[in-house]
Design a protein around this nucleic acid. Sequence first.
DNA 1: AATAAAAATTAGCCATGTCTAATTTTTATC
DNA 2: GATAAAAATTAGACATGGCTAATTTTTATT
Lengths: 222, 222
Amino acid sequence: MTRTLSEENYLKAIFHLSRNSKEKVSITTLAASLENTAASVISMLRKLTAKELVDYDKQKGASLTRAGEKAAIDIVRKHRLWEVLLAEKLEFSWEEIHDIAEQLEHVHHPELADRLDKFLGFPQFDPHGHPIPDIKGNISQVSGKLLSDSTIGIELEVVGVKDSSSMFLNYLKQLDIKIGSKLMVEQIIEFDQSAIVKINNSSSISVSRKFLESILIISTGS
Amino acid sequence: MTRTLSEENYLKAIFHLSRNSKEKVSITTLAASLENTAASVISMLRKLTAKELVDYDKQKGASLTRAGEKAAIDIVRKHRLWEVLLAEKLEFSWEEIHDIAEQLEHVHHPELADRLDKFLGFPQFDPHGHPIPDIKGNISQVSGKLLSDSTIGIELEVVGVKDSSSMFLNYLKQLDIKIGSKLMVEQIIEFDQSAIVKINNSSSISVSRKFLESILIISTGS
DNA sequence: AATAAAAATTAGCCATGTCTAATTTTTATC
DNA sequence: GATAAAAATTAGACATGGCTAATTTTTATT
Ligand SMILES: [Mn+2]
Ligand SMILES: [Mn+2]
Ligand SMILES: [Mn+2]
Ligand SMILES: [Mn+2]
């Protein structure tokens, strides 16, 4: 019952997509997320259904079986632990680690994740602020809420990002925003839901709605 | 010009096989080494020849071009660096690391090997006693010679193994032989070239010719 | 209910990397 | 030099995981 790289990527995609919306995942959504065609998605879902990793065809949409979720969490755990190693031990930066971890997450060995976990000192979050599933598969609550859901005029602290793409992270680097940075939403522009945000108590910049929905914060001030 | 996993495994196999015999590698030899059929080997060699990583068809046998050798050394470097990380940082044992490194060696990132190298303190040899190519691709000489080439009655020290399979390494573990262990060949049996070997100055055991050809030693005594 | 748009599905094709079963060289051996 | 064995090659097939181009089904919109 060994899983191919493609199978693992599908399981992970379904896992992440059903986390957000809490719903069954449609073919179209999966296709967009994996940058594959709907036809390809359907044939893979059939394969995963046959392997009893995915429930499908019942209604519209796919969801993970217990076994599928277990497999997905295992991949996510490996992905995030490798990211910690890459960042903390090998000195890679925020925007470099994700793509390497995409490859490392598919390395198979029954004890690998646990050894990494121990070596790294059982980290709770990866460098993007995402929770690392523990050895039993329990995932702690994401700390923080979306910047788009925050109140105007309150001091906020960045605790994570929702988007780990190097495109987004390079943008943040340019703005000198990282985990721990201070933000304050000064104004929301009604016209397009963009905002003026003060960074680290110095410069104020204009950012898009999409930006606001990609940053996780906690409020730390008045 | 990105390489597939299969392509990389062929390059590595040609590299190792032509190291030993210093000759061009035959289809049959490659097929045996990769556990593929001769037909498969031929079609892959065509592909690699088209990519100018392999010279073929000139005479009997394949060899690496300059570019092919560079690629192969890069893979070997990654393999051995990962083995050091697995053994020294993640506490995996001798016989576990090779199979994991077989997967890790295919992870692509321009700086990964160098970061690993630095983090590990620029190790010269992997846990099996094999030299790690440096950043420029230079490979230091294997220290030691084969146990089968040693003189009878001289104290020897194990500095490496020629066979990194878990099968062989588990056998060594059972015999309590590791790098640094002391050996002495007491007798060679003419009949089948097997030998009586004293281990760590205590028990003597009988080992096959194949065994003698799988251990690297230096002489340390009279 | 009729119709249009969106989503899902089917059918057929393709590249990669394998394989088996001939067949053709090449190399040894008498 | 003839002949047998070994090695290389060809031919054709198959599994995987993609794709495009219909077609069918479902969902919305008047
Ligand atoms: Mn992946
Ligand atoms: Mn991450
Ligand atoms: Mn490999
Ligand atoms: Mn090794």
